[in-house]
Design a protein around this nucleic acid. Structure first.
Ligand SMILES: [Mn+2]
Ligand SMILES: [Mn+2]
Ligand SMILES: [Zn+2]
Ligand SMILES: [Zn+2]
Lengths: 139, 139
DNA sequence: TTCCATAATTAGAATTATTATAGAATAATA
DNA sequence: TATTATTCTATAATAATTCTAATTATGGAA
């Protein structure tokens, strides 16, 4: 709790009740949540929460570098509380978005082909190992 | 024209008037168009074209591997007629989506971390070299 | 050619994620 | 306390995409 407030303050974000709770949810659920997942979790604790607040807060968090935005699913934005550079796999079978451990040659590059780069998104789409082994078991 | 029909047939797509024209537009405009860009071009030649047809056709093309779908812009889908594996830069200044020539270590990989992969999307976001040099000129 | 079954196209409605707006609540300040 | 700025909420607006049902085009059999 105190921790969360400190995190927000370190990024110059006023630690409101709603913002703290949203940050808490991001920390607890290590996945790559979309707005509705976060909103549904929030409803349990703040029944009056507005979805607009979730959108606004996540925009603020993204601006201040507290979360990363993923466009790996075409329908909606996903939010990643892990801001260390890493890539993602979208399993087309179970729909999960999974961190993948790859050594990206450009992770620390500041430019590419003469263009300056500020952000890198690496997306893989396929079948996750859990789904693969479930399929194999079913045989 | 005959060329385009052959391409469609080779992918088992009936070469209808609309589909041929959409393919023609994709070939001509080498960019990374969205549905509205394609639709606006089409209107010049087929004033009765329906946006639903554009969506349906592009879905078919994507299914049959004739185009690749890019989710680099969060608002809308972009379509790439160049299906050879390559990555993209979104210039946050001019909005263009530009092919980048990088040697991706995973381009030909079939699996990663135990997950099987069918598709790779590599996105860079930053400022393109044209915008950089324009900025510098303005000084 | 004519008829029929099927596939493709169209217009418009429905869905859904996101953004804009304006007022209410809350917190900060003096 | 009174004033001011910030945050939050509810609702409306926007825009991409999908769904639906009706219409049109197409290819093959008779
Ligand atoms: Mn992640
Ligand atoms: Mn491209
Ligand atoms: Zn899976
Ligand atoms: Zn640019």
């Amino acid at each position: 709790m105190e921790e969360l407030i400190k995190i927000l303050q370190s990024k110059n974000i006023q630690p409101s009740h709603q913002r703290i709770k949203i940050l808490e949810i991001l920390e607890k659920n290590k996945g790559h949540m979309n707005v509705n997942m976060i909103y549904d979790e929030l409803l349990k604790e703040i029944p009056t929460i507005s979805k607009t607040t979730v959108y606004n807060t996540l925009s603020t968090f993204a601006e201040k570098g507290l979360v990363h935005c993923l466009t790996i699913t075409p329908e909606e934005m996903r939010y990643d509380y892990d801001t260390k550079p890493h890539h993602h796999l979208l399993c087309t079978q179970c729909g999960r978005i999974i961190d993948v451990d790859v050594r990206c040659a450009y992770a620390d590059a500041m430019e590419i082909d003469g263009h300056s780069i500020e952000e890198i998104q690496g997306y893989f789409k396929g079948t996750c190992k859990e789904c693969l082994s479930r399929d194999k078991a079913k045989h």
